[in-house]
Amino acid sequence: MYQTNQYEGMIAETVSMRGHNGDVINAYVARPLGAGPFPGMVVIHHAPGWDEWYRECARRFAHHGYVSISPNLYFRDGHGSPEDVGAKVRAAGGAPDARVLGDLDGANAWLRSLPYVSRKVGIFGTCSGGRQAFLAGCRLKGLDAVIECWGGRVVQSKEELTPNQPVAPIDYTKELSCPIIGIFGNEDKSPTPEQVNAHEAELKKHGKQYEFHRYDGAGHGFFYYDRPAYRQEQAVDGWKKVFAFCEKTLR
C-alpha cells in the first residue's frame, strides 16, 4: 500500500520491440522510477484494439511496482485510430494465434533484457487477451504468472476453430507452466459459467496451481469503466485479487 510520504515516479512511453519472426513492432511501456529490480508484466490489449484502457492498465501496473509493456498486436494491420485498426482486424477474424504468441514472447524477452527487471514476469489480458494470456502461459517459456480476465473462447467447439485460432487453448492446459488467476462474471456469455467450469476442471485435472474468482451481478468486461458493463464493486474487488496474486507469484 502506498504511503503519503513515499517517493513515487513513473516513465511511460512508446517503444519499439521485436515480435513474431523478428518483426519490429511498437509497444507502450510504463515503469516505476528507480533501480529496481521490479517484476515485469506483459499487458495484452483486447480484440477491439490497442486503446487507451490498456495504456492506463500498463500505468496501473507501473504504479504498483511492475515494469509493464503492452505490445501493439495489430501493428502489421496498419495505423490509424485504435477503432479503425481494430475494426479491420475484427473483419479478418482476429489476429492469428501464432503471430500473437510470437509478439508476446518478444515482449517478455524485451522486459528480461532490462537491467531493472527482476527474474519474474507475468502476463495479463482481458477478453481475447485473457484467452491469449492463458495460451501464452501454456505455449511460451519464461512466464511466471498468468492473469486471465474473462478469456472467452478458451473453450471452443470444433465449429468455432478458425485458421487464425486453430486450436482451443483449453487443449493446451497440460502445458501450463505457471500459476494462473482467473476473473469471471457469472452473467458473461463468453465465457459462460459452464465454460469456466470446464476450464477449471481441466486445470484441476492436470494439477495446476490456480485460483478462479467468479462475480455475481457482473458480465463480460466488468473492469471497463468506459462501458456499460462496468461493475464498480466487483471491479474493485477483482483488481485487489489480481494484485494480491501478483505479489504472491512475482515478488
Binding site: R90, C127, R153, H220
Partner: peptide, 9 residues
C-alpha cells in the same frame, strides 16, 4: 466476448 463472427463482401 469477441465472437469472431465476421463476413466480408
Amino acid at each position: 466476448m469477441c465472437t469472431m463472427i465476421a463476413h466480408q463482401v
